[in-house]
């Protein structure tokens, strides 16, 4: 990975506030952050620290009040809702704590769903969805609905859905928050695997042992980055 490579995500002097009573509440203050392509980063912090807002800004779900968020050198500054949607569709795969699968809809259809928002009609949608399910080891469950799947399986369907548009960045918000520890390990192993295949992975977590499986831990408190550490040794230990 050379240094001249385009950073996956870069935040420059990022500030954001929410209206709250008379004084707006300053949720992020002057954040500078660069995440290189191929990195696996954990964002930690207590609730109210601003990590969710940071995540939403990185995920192009909103535009910053001040400063700039660049996704693969596409600045979100001044983008309208439709442009943001296209940026998310093309570059980001979202994974949520509550999986957010469509109920009573098969795993295959859930994975396929984002394709309906493509600019051109995708003809090989079923085939692509099947390949994504294969890559999360759920090829045999493609016709199961979420209620017929375990929590870990549901999260893997959600990950497969995040992969369908072949994004370079995966954003996971507490992806193991609703799972037991054994399943959490499986999901983390899957993320590491995807990271090894070249995906940039950013995840928000409360759990230190989850965070320690990443390359880098960013700790946010009171709207500023309190610490930004690399965790190299741990990865070598875990990788067989």
């Amino acid at each position: 990975m050379s240094h001249t490579e385009i950073p996956a995500i870069s935040c420059k002097q990022l500030s954001h506030s929410f209206p709250m009573g008379e004084e707006p509440f300053q949720v992020l203050k002057d954040i500078d952050l660069t995440i290189r392509t191929g990195e696996m980063v954990a964002i930690m912090g207590p609730s109210g620290s601003g990590k969710s807002t940071l995540m939403n800004l990185i995920g192009c779900l909103m535009t910053p009040e001040q400063g700039e968020v660049c996704l693969l050198e596409n600045s979100t500054r001044g983008m309208d809702r439709a442009q943001l949607a296209c940026l998310r569709r093309d570059h980001i795969g979202f994974v949520f704590q509550q999986f957010n699968l469509l109920a009573r809809t098969s795993a295959l259809d859930n994975v396929k769903m984002p394709l309906m928002y493509a600019d051109n009609v995708v003809k090989d949608g079923d085939e692509r969805a099947r390949r994504c399910l294969e890559s999360v080891n759920l090829a045999d469950r493609q016709n199961h609905t979420p209620s017929q799947l375990s929590g870990g399986q549901q999260q893997r369907v959600a990950i497969a859905r995040a992969l369908i548009n072949e994004p370079s960045i995966l954003l996971a918000d507490e992806p193991t928050g609703a799972l037991d520890s054994k399943t959490s390990e499986d999901i983390m192993a899957l993320f590491r695997d995807l990271n090894r295949q070249g995906k940039t992975v950013v995840l928000v977590t409360h759990e230190l042992d989850v965070a320690q499986q990443c390359d880098r831990i960013i700790f946010v408190r009171d709207g500023v980055i309190q610490s930004d550490k690399s965790v190299i040794s741990h990865r070598e230990e875990v990788t067989p």
Partner: peptide, 16 residues
């Protein structure tokens, strides 16, 4: 509402 949020997150534009 949640489904709409999800669809937007994965790339649905307002017009969709």
């Amino acid at each position: 509402t949640r489904e709409i949020g999800l669809r937007m997150a994965v790339g649905a534009q307002p017009r969709h």
